[in-house]
């Protein structure tokens, strides 16, 4: 016959399950170079606005592809593949601010002929990426040794 646990035991097991789930989904610490390297890479994309539009487009696509490849490599080392909704949240946290800054700089240049927003955008992108990775790392568990 099935024996059900006491309520106190069931409560403890629920807490343990919640803890295990949180630990698994917390993510792992990324390499220290990850934030500055990607921030620098994105900053280069911003500063490349003096190039023709098609060269910029190629550079932006290449930068994003390189970023996704670096991120995938980092995540592969974690021993965990995250659920799609978590991956979506991470990609949104990166791409939405980038898109907003890029659009803002494009508009300011197009409407007012200003070039300095690109330099400001590059500085903001770099700072944002460094802070974002630092924020992720603060909440993450140590990376497992291969």
């Amino acid at each position: 016959m099935e024996s059900h646990p006491e309520p106190s035991e069931a409560k403890a097991m629920l807490a343990e399950a919640a803890q295990a789930g949180e630990t698994a989904s917390a993510g792992v610490r990324l390499e220290p170079w990850f934030g500055p390297a990607l921030g620098g890479f994105e900053a280069v994309v911003f500063l490349s606005h003096l190039l023709p539009w098609w060269a910029q487009a190629v550079l932006v696509i290449a930068a994003l592809a390189a970023f996704m490849a670096a991120l995938a490599k980092q995540l592969q080392l974690t021993g965990v593949r995250y659920r799609l909704r978590d991956a979506k949240a991470a990609v949104a946290a990166i791409l939405i601010p980038l898109a907003v800054l890029y659009l803002g700089a494009t508009l300011l240049e197009g409407l007012a002929g200003l070039r300095w927003p690109w330099a400001l955008g590059a500085a903001l992108v770099f700072t944002y990426m460094v802070l974002l990775v630092r924020h992720w790392n603060a909440a993450a568990r140590p990376r497992r040794t291969p």
Partner: peptide, 16 residues
């Protein structure tokens, strides 16, 4: 229960 909780939170996880 902990194995299921761990795997439920992610798509896939390595044995180690």
């Amino acid at each position: 229960l902990r194995i299921c909780a761990t795997l439920y939170a992610v798509d896939e996880a390595e044995f180690g």
